[in-house]
Amino acid sequence: MMTEATVQQTASKPDLNAPLAVEVNDLTVAYRSKPVLWDVDLNVPTGVLMAILGPNGAGKTTLLKSLLGLIPPAAGKVQILGQPYAKVQKRVGYVPQRGSVDWDFPTTVLDVVTMGVYGKIGWFKRPGKADRTAAMGALARVGMENFATRQISQLSGGQQQRVFLARALLQDADIYFMDEPFQGVDATTERAIIAILQEIKDAGKTVIVVHHDLQTVEEYFDWALLLNVRAIASGPVGEVFTGELLRQSYGGKISFIEDMQRYRLGEDAAALQSSARDLPPWESWGGGEG
């Protein structure tokens, strides 16, 4: 696992000369005067595949939504690709949490994917044939071309996630934000999704993913942010994904964490995660359904 990750990192290094993909300074987000994010600083270089990690209620989804301009900050500044969000929104792709929409909405798979171009075709216009062809292409990329006319209520969780990914791919963005894309999907879908995320990264684009399976972090990602209301650490996975920093992020509740140094991190990570479930009170807003 380690060697694979190392290979990936040397294969396509983050471009440190390009403008930062994400630059966050002193970001604070509060909900009813309770801070959900506190004084977060974050620099993400272009061309990385980054995981946002942290226990439930750490504010992972809130951070993602703040980056996307969906939640107004109480304080601080966010820049995407060197500019405020409004200036670059056409270069940003978004995959929301699967559970955030009503999958019984009367529409088809192709129609949902085509929504990816709604920001670009302008007022009073309908998506044309070229848009639908492009949408079919995006569906083919996620292996769902045979589902184009399917009603969305007939999809499995993994298929729903692929549809959302295809919609974001259609946006042909330079930076992608994804909220728990592996949540409740089957193993095949997970492999298909991560392969696409690697492709995006290899094309020099940036992908930022809210993630909570600590076991797969080293295999999937080359950059990581450890978050627990504050930004604990961010940087290359090799530097950030250490026992000491994980303990800071996931809290001192976990007694076995001392054993971490002795075992392979991946094996402990699962146990660490399961014991970190019963965490802070802001969950209902920060990390849940959003």
């Binding site: 978004y94 529409t107 709604y118």
Partner: peptide
């Protein structure tokens, strides 16, 4: 039409598109 559809299905996504 398309704006109302997206607004009804997935308003947050609509907002990230700049609508």
């Amino acid at each position: 039409w398309k704006e109302f559809k997206l607004l009804s299905f997935n308003p947050e996504y609509a907002q990230t598109l700049g609508l």
